[in-house]
Amino acid sequence: MRVSHLRRAVIVGAVTGATVGMLAAPAWAHVEVSADNPQAGARDVTVTFDGEAESTRSGIVSERVILPAGIRPEDVRLAKAPPGWKLVPAADGYTVAGKALPVGENAVHSIVITHLPADATQLAFKTIETYGDGKVSRWIGVSAAGQPEPDNPAPVLKLKPAAQPAPTSAAPTSAAATPTQDSAPPTASADTSPTPTAAAGQDDGPPVGLWIALASVVVIAAAAVGLVMYRRRTGRMRT
């Protein structure tokens, strides 16, 4: 009896522990999201969604994605999707849809987002999957701080912090490169020195008065010589 009771207690404890563990474990999203550059503020980021096929009777025909705050429908373009599937924008996101996929095949599609929000740390993409038989799976639950994981969690993309701009330093200003009043190059100035004149330094030859005086001396000397010669001539004639 004691062994039987002990065995029963062990089994009950094991089942209870497993049940508690399952309840305590976080729920896993059945739509996974990833990105080639999961960084806040990044541009032209390719984001891929992998929607797990859960129905054993019908394939997935569409995935409706509600975009998080900071991303507009016009910032999204389709990069990859199952054959024949098209993207149709909506007011709050988009739907990518087409012919039903084979039963058990995941719905995988990629979009390119022009610009991720620069101040976000994570992005929740609420996704609604629709199957060919009308079944709808809503992966739209967003966990809150201090609260347990929702039963149908939305796929969440974790982001790295935005890249910081490289510090720049102002180029030193060169005094030679920027002329000032004190360093302005010398300019040609007018020559204010007096221009030489005839009286101040230009040699124009002897003055006119000097030439007149010399002429007078010559005339007087010639007259004196003539007078002397005349007297000698008249003296000889008398003798």
Rank of each mutant, 00 (worst) to 15 (best):
S137I: 11
A144C: 11
Y131I: 00
I128C: 04
S137E: 09
S143W: 01
A145W: 08
E129H: 08
I128V: 15
D151A: 15
R138Q: 05
N152V: 07
A154I: 09
P148M: 15
G146H: 05
N152S: 09
K126M: 12
Y131D: 00
R138P: 00
D133P: 14
E149K: 14
P155K: 12
N152K: 12
K135C: 09
P148Q: 13
S143N: 14
E149L: 14
V156W: 01
P148T: 09
E149P: 03
S143F: 01
A145N: 12
W139L: 07
G134P: 08
I128M: 08
I140D: 01
A145M: 11
G146N: 06
W139C: 06
G146K: 05
K126P: 03
R138W: 09
G146S: 06
G132T: 05
G134F: 12
A154M: 01
K126A: 10
P155C: 13
G141P: 04
I128R: 06
R138D: 10
W139P: 01
E149D: 13
T130P: 10
K135R: 06
G141W: 05
E149C: 14
V136Y: 07
V142R: 11
G146Y: 12
G141V: 04
W139D: 00
R138N: 03
N152M: 10
G141I: 02
E149V: 02
G132W: 07
S137F: 05
G134S: 13
T127R: 03
T130C: 02
P148G: 15
G134A: 07
T130I: 02
P148W: 01
T130D: 00
V142E: 09
D133S: 13
K135S: 00
A144N: 15
A144T: 05
V156G: 08
Q147D: 11
I140R: 12
G132A: 12
E149I: 07
T130M: 06
P148R: 15
K126I: 01
T130A: 08
P148D: 08
K135L: 03
R138M: 03
I140A: 02
K126S: 07
D133H: 15
E129R: 12
P150S: 11
A144E: 14
G146W: 06
P150C: 13
T127P: 01
P153K: 05
N152C: 06
A144Q: 15
V156Y: 01
D151I: 15
S143R: 15
P153M: 12
A144K: 15
T130R: 10
V136D: 03
P155V: 14
V156Q: 07
D133K: 06
D133R: 13
G146F: 12
S143T: 04
V136T: 15
D133G: 14
V136F: 13
A145Q: 14
V136A: 10
W139S: 04
Y131A: 04
A154V: 03
W139V: 00
S143L: 08
Q147S: 13
D151M: 14
G134L: 10
V142H: 12
K135G: 03
P155Q: 09
K135V: 07
P150D: 04
K126Y: 08
K135F: 12
P153Y: 15
T130V: 06
E129A: 11
S137P: 00
P150N: 11
K126F: 07
G146M: 07
S137W: 04
W139E: 03
D133N: 15
T127Q: 07
V156K: 01
G141M: 05
